[in-house]
Design a protein around this nucleic acid. Structure first.
Length: 437
RNA sequence: GGAACGGUGGCAGAGCGGACAAAUGCAGCCGCCUUGAAAGCGGCCGGCCCACAAGGCCCGGGGGUUCGAAUCCCUCCCGUUCCGCCA
């Protein structure tokens, strides 16, 4: 969530910044926050004053008892008891008000970075790298590449959507044989490619409500997540969720930042809002595998890390021989928690579309405030500064399997209908260099 | 799932109804001493709200008893050990 104090110190800037997202409802939410915050502070001051009086009286009671003045003590106790009731009322009001304010704060999106491009939809996202396409552009692909992966996969016996649906439900997928090996190889490769700088983690894939709230999925997007109600747990939609919360409630040393983590995990998404979209093949599934990279950083380190992480993802995709481009997400298309965001897209010649295969984002302190992840800042001489500060979080998919898998099938389809496995994956394929044939 | 014992500041660890934000040790910061460092000595040293004041809040979370709770009661969560069950 955003810092309420910004509403008091720099209201106009907050309004202007949120306005760039193009959501007309936000302005009235800001008004609500301001009035709740004002009331909350008023009640807090009142409650504190009453508490101070009760504390003072209680001290005196203790002293009078020690001195043997029972009657005097009784009198003060009665006075304090009466004040206690006032305090209870004020405390209850305070808690109600505070809960209301938090409710609003949890649904207000992050402020976009000044350099994030303005825009109202994905049509306004500028291409900042590429597109890297064959000669002739998207018309430059050969005829044998223009077959959608669901046909290729089914024909080669490496994709069995029909049985996946029978076992689970629609929009679940299943890879078989060399297809399953290819999926696992992609994960393995993505982990190895980032192992130079990121600690590998194997996190829980079921998490608590508090954890799913910290990263921004709850309360607003509860319908998009699978819930295990009996045990009050949720299936993670991405490893970002457990990785971000690893240090929730903790205070890190500045020397430990940036802290970098990567994780392979299955990801679960109900896709509640996407019924009927991309229902074929591997473009959209309820369960898929992904390797995530994530960093906790100081505010000063964040911008550079973002660039580094986008670069890593782009190089990884490029090394697989896929035709790609990098776009920056405009203010009107950014996710709720995002401060600045980039997508890497791959062109799939068979289904004839650009596929988002990675999204790398900087969340400023938005998630860290929800999760309460802080560090002890040092000054320029390396001496501790008083107090603590929130870290900045960044994360991105190093590699999301299904769409990359699909793009490889389509891009690497040979005239004879077989699939050439990208060279960088050979070490992970048990000797398979060509699928089919 | 059952039983026992625990959960206190960056860490370790006292306190178990009244001046406790909390002893002590370690770590950290400042200074003295020293050519420098270590040792030693002196001082400082948790976080949060709020305007850096006053004041308030925080001893796993929540609730209760009381004039007053780190301390008593209830409840939940977590940890350790033992039992049960098991990949």
């Amino acid at each position: 969530m955003i810092d309420v104090r910004l509403l008091r110190s720099d209201l106009d800037a907050v309004r202007a910044s949120l306005a760039r997202r193009g959501d007309a409802d936000l302005d009235s939410l800001v008004d609500t926050m301001i009035s709740l915050d004002a009331k909350l502070r008023e009640i807090t001051a009142e409650r504190d004053a009453v508490r101070a009086k009760v504390n003072e009286l209680s001290k005196q009671v203790g002293m009078l008892r020690r001195d043997g003045d029972a009657a005097g003590a009784e009198a003060l106790q009665a006075e304090s008891r009466a004040l206690g009731e006032t305090e209870n009322t004020l405390a209850a009001d305070h808690d109600t008000m505070s809960a209301k304010l938090r409710e609003v704060l949890l649904v207000v999106p992050n402020l976009p970075h000044p350099d994030s491009p303005d825009g109202t939809s994905d049509a306004d996202n500028p291409v900042i790298s590429g597109p890297f396409l064959p000669a002739g552009g998207i018309d430059g692909f050969a005829e044998h590449q223009r077959v959608p992966h669901w046909e290729i996969g089914t024909d080669l016996g490496i994709l069995d959507s029909e049985r996946a649906t029978k076992i689970a439900a629609s929009m679940f997928t299943m890879q078989r044989g060399a297809g399953a090996t290819l999926a696992r190889a992609l994960c393995q490769y993505a982990l190895d490619a980032n192992a130079d700088a990121f600690e590998e983690v194997r996190p829980p894939t079921l998490v608590s409500t508090a954890t799913l709230t910290s990263t921004g999925q709850l309360p607003k997007f509860a319908d998009d997540a699978y819930a295990i109600e009996r045990d009050d747990l949720w299936c993670i939609p991405t490893a970002e969720v457990p990785l971000t919360s690893m240090y929730a409630g903790e205070v890190l040393a500045q020397a430990d930042l940036p802290a970098r983590f990567m994780a392979y995990s299955p990801c679960y998404r109900r896709e509640a809002g996407s019924a009927g979209r991309d229902t074929r093949g591997m473009l959209r599934a309820h369960e898929f595998d992904k390797v995530e990279i994530l960093a906790l950083a100081t505010p000063d380190q964040a911008a550079e890390l973002l660039t580094e992480m986008v670069g890593r993802v782009e190089r990884l995709i490029s090394s697989l021989g896929l035709h790609h481009r990098v776009i920056e997400i405009c203010t009107g298309d950014m996710g709720q928690s995002h401060h600045r965001s980039f997508d890497v897209e791959v062109y799939a010649p068979g289904c004839e579309q650009w596929l988002e295969v990675s999204s790398v984002s900087w969340f400023s302190d938005y998630q860290a405030r929800r999760a309460d992840i802080r560090y002890r800042p040092l000054d320029a001489d390396g001496k501790p500064v008083k107090g603590t500060a929130l870290v900045h979080t960044l994360n991105g998919s190093a590699l999301a399997v299904p769409r990359v898998w699909a793009a490889i099938l389509e891009t690497n389809r040979q005239p004879d209908g077989t699939i050439a496995v990208p060279k960088v994956l050979h070490p992970y394929m048990r000797g398979i260099t060509v699928i089919g044939g």
